[in-house]
């Protein structure tokens, strides 16, 4: 079997994705959490899941609009990490926070609508995680693409979930919701083409001005 080439970028993505988990374990062991540690762990795993899901959604536009092909290589890993954190987040809620008290959980499920949307998002991610392998991709053929478009709905549900947990100030959820909205818009062919045109125009102008003699200071 041929060994797949593992790029530095891929290594970076894996390490970065595992960092929140490592920090969480470290802070728990060190006693750096607040006096309400279960809530801390719940919030932190939820935030990690959200960020990774958004990055997963960003992979395709990064390629189609910015030509950053490496993003496609890490897209599956990002999605699986998002699922990992979402899974931990859910298990902590059910197991640690509610101690598997299903009577209480049942009551809460009815009253806490953010639990419903959050659970729905996680349910969507389960089949996507299972079918993320090359084998399933081959077996499902065209259906695979359609199936994996469900991540768009998961992304929206996660934002709603996030906004509904807030006491009143929803600026953070609005910010992340805005990013998700942009990433979803970027998938509409007309929008994508317009974005590509605009990017090319910008980079042309930039390179031209460089040629004219401006200091070639590129970031």
């Amino acid at each position: 079997m041929k060994r797949p080439k593992f790029t530095v970028f891929q290594l970076f993505v894996h390490l970065a994705a595992l960092l929140p988990l490592a920090l969480l374990v470290w802070d728990t062991v060190q006693g750096n959490l607040s006096v309400n540690p279960i809530q801390d762990i719940t919030f932190r795993t939820g935030k990690a899941a959200l960020v990774l899901l958004v990055l997963t959604l960003a992979a395709t536009p990064a390629n189609t609009i910015f030509g950053f092909r490496q993003a496609i290589k890490v897209r599956r890993a990002l999605g699986l990490y998002a699922f990992l954190y979402a899974g931990i987040h859910f298990l902590i809620f059910v197991g640690l926070d509610y101690g598997f008290n299903f009577r209480l959980l049942g009551l809460e499920l009815v009253e806490k609508r953010y639990v419903l949307v959050g659970s729905a998002a996680l349910l969507i991610l389960i089949p996507l995680a299972i079918t993320s392998t090359k084998g399933w991709q081959r077996r499902l053929g065209k259906t695979w693409k359609t199936l994996h478009k469900w991540i768009y709905l998961a992304g929206i549900l996660v934002i709603v979930h996030y906004a509904w947990v807030q006491k009143a100030d929803i600026r953070q959820p609005l910010l992340w919701g805005g990013i998700v909205a942009l990433l979803l818009l970027a998938r509409i062919p007309a929008v994508r083409r317009a974005a590509v045109r605009y990017r090319k125009k910008l980079s042309n102008r930039f390179s031209r001005s460089n040629k004219i003699g401006a200091p070639a200071k590129t970031a």
Partner: peptide, 21 residues
């Protein structure tokens, strides 16, 4: 009477693992 977005049936006493009703 639950908060419109979450339940008020139980609580976590700071320093305890199990929730209290």
């Amino acid at each position: 009477v639950s908060h419109p977005r979450w339940s008020q049936r139980s609580e976590r006493r700071i320093g305890e693992l199990k929730r209290r009703e």
